[in-house]
């Protein structure tokens, strides 16, 4: 492979990782934008999502990489799997908000954040105890189509990941910008008390934010499985830290920022891993997080958090 091929290949990899991180970052940003809460449970909602996707695919009789689907069956399986996964993680997110975080809404200090850490731990250990510690083979029903661009390879799965992530992000943007509930969500993020006084049911808005964020985390977990061909109870931590870094890099609370941040982090991981060694990828990502927080806390596109009076 020439240097350029290598570059191209890492760009392809980075964009796929980036799509995954962007979806994850959106969940952090939606919740933070309204509640100013770092939702650590998001880390493992993502992980649980990949297992729900795994289970759904297994219901179709898909286990390893052997069974290949094409045409309508493939589209159907993917559609059902994404829908089931996203609904399920969305419901988990809503449950966390409704029963564990809402009672703490007006409590000052770190109580809510500590609760999300606890929830994250609970999810992590539930999967560990029920599924086991070994990583699971993730079915991949996609036909092994690929095209060579020079020495680099672009596979069908990457193209698919890009398309799905783009569709989801477009749908979210449409929702936030063009629907009444989306507008209420933006209003709540800018001034929760004023929004409430306009008649916005803030509880419903917050629930929606958790639902959407968690559903996107579920989609992201499914993409993880499709991309890496495995899943494990451990995947939440690293992906979560990258997703959060992406949200901060783009400007936390900022929806387009989360998407941009995700792509950048994906590319950084791909190229950084290539240049410095994948063992240090975490250190690079983390260094970005600290540098952004220290020198540009508003991120690339501006931090958008509630004006609290």
């Amino acid at each position: 492979m020439t240097t350029f091929d290598l570059f191209l290949q890492q760009a392809i990899n980075g964009l796929s990782l980036g799509a995954m991180y962007a979806l994850l970052a959106l969940g952090f940003t939606l919740v933070y934008g309204i509640l100013e809460l770092i939702n650590f449970s998001h880390f493992n909602v993502f992980m649980v999502g990949s297992f729900i996707a795994l289970w759904t695919l297994q219901q179709f009789g898909l286990f390893g990489q052997e069974t290949i689907l094409v045409g309508l069956p493939l589209a159907g399986v993917l559609l059902v799997t994404f829908t089931v996964t996203m609904l399920a993680t969305g419901v988990i997110g809503v449950g966390i908000e409704r029963f564990l975080l809402r009672p703490l809404r007006d409590v000052k200090g770190p109580a809510a954040m500590i609760t999300t850490i606890g929830v994250s731990y609970i999810l992590f250990n539930i999967i560990l105890l029920t599924v086991g510690a070994d990583s699971k083979n993730f079915p991949n029903p996609l036909p092994p189509l690929q095209i060579a661009i020079g020495g680099a390879v672009l596979r069908l799965r990457e193209v698919l990941i890009w398309i799905i992530a783009t569709l989801l992000m477009l749908a979210l943007t449409f929702f936030v910008q063009r629907t009444k509930l989306g507008r209420a969500m933006r209003a709540t993020a800018q001034d929760p008390e004023a929004a409430r006084m306009m008649g916005v049911e803030v509880d419903r808005v917050i629930m929606t934010a958790f639902f959407l964020g968690s559903a996107l985390a579920g989609a992201s977990g499914l993409i993880f499985g499709l991309y890496y061909n495995f899943t494990s109870f451990l995947i939440g931590f690293n992906a979560g830290l990258r997703g959060f870094t992406a949200a901060v890099l783009g400007g936390i609370g900022n929806v387009p920022g989360a998407m941009l941040g995700g792509l950048i982090i994906g590319l950084v991981e791909a190229f950084g891993g290539q240049l410095i060694g994948s063992a240090w990828a975490d250190v690079i990502i983390f260094a970005i997080l600290v540098l952004v927080l220290v020198f540009r806390p508003a991120g690339l596109l501006g931090r958008l958090a509630p004006n609290r009076s």
Binding site: R183, A187, Q190, A194, M198
Partner: peptide, 20 residues
């Protein structure tokens, strides 16, 4: 102190007034 939604347009603010 007014408390408009600062990053929304004037029109969107008026829409928020009619929210219910």
């Amino acid at each position: 102190a007014r408390r408009l939604f600062p990053r929304m347009t004037v029109y969107e603010n008026l829409e928020m007034g009619a929210y219910t």
